[in-house]
Amino acid sequence: MSDQTKLTVKGIGDRLLFTCRGTTWDECWQAIERYITEHADFLKNAKIIIDVRDVAVGSSELSCASEYCQQHQITISAVYSTNSETKQSAALLGIPTQHAEKEAASANKLSNQAMDKAVLIHRSLRSGTLVDEACDVVIFGDVHAGVTVRSDRNIIIWGKLMGEAHAGRSGDTSAVVCALELTPTGLKIAGIPLDSAKRKPKEPEVAVLDENTVKIIPWKKITY
């Protein structure tokens, strides 16, 4: 397969979508690198989305790619992938894994699929990490200050929430944010922010939307 057949490039709004058809990251990157070299002037100051489909990309590989792009004044604005390792690598580097346009284009399909799915993250998230998912997000670890977690559904944290969380981002007013220790820097449900006040929770809590106001209630009082 030649580089041309491994890579297609098309414009989406103010971005360029690079769709890779390689079976490994090396193949994908080789094609992207060649394209960037050949079109360096055209791509200056461009924002690109890299779609690697199900190819696994490690965080150091993605970091190298991001640095190479920066050298050519190109910004990787998102990475699309169905591979969980790739999604985690992008999240570690603060690169969004989904994009609002893509979600909007298939909103109904996504919301139906999202009902049955969840993303599980088995580690604490450090400052600079962005998790952006359409489905439920379950985190076994702490969410440090400087982390943003966004979901169209619920966000469940088996640990401390010290960063920002936005559940029900596409307008789901029934979405909740749960944590063993809920001390967020920012919290929104369906776009409505929690009135920030320094808190010292003593038990697991749930943030819910009640009459257009985000309220925090003890976990034990929740009944499904």
Binding site: S59, S60, S63, L93, G128, G146
Partner: peptide, 15 residues
Amino acid sequence: VRDADRIIGLIEAEQ
């Protein structure tokens, strides 16, 4: 501390 947390995350990302 916030910056140290970011750096530790990047160190982990670089394995």
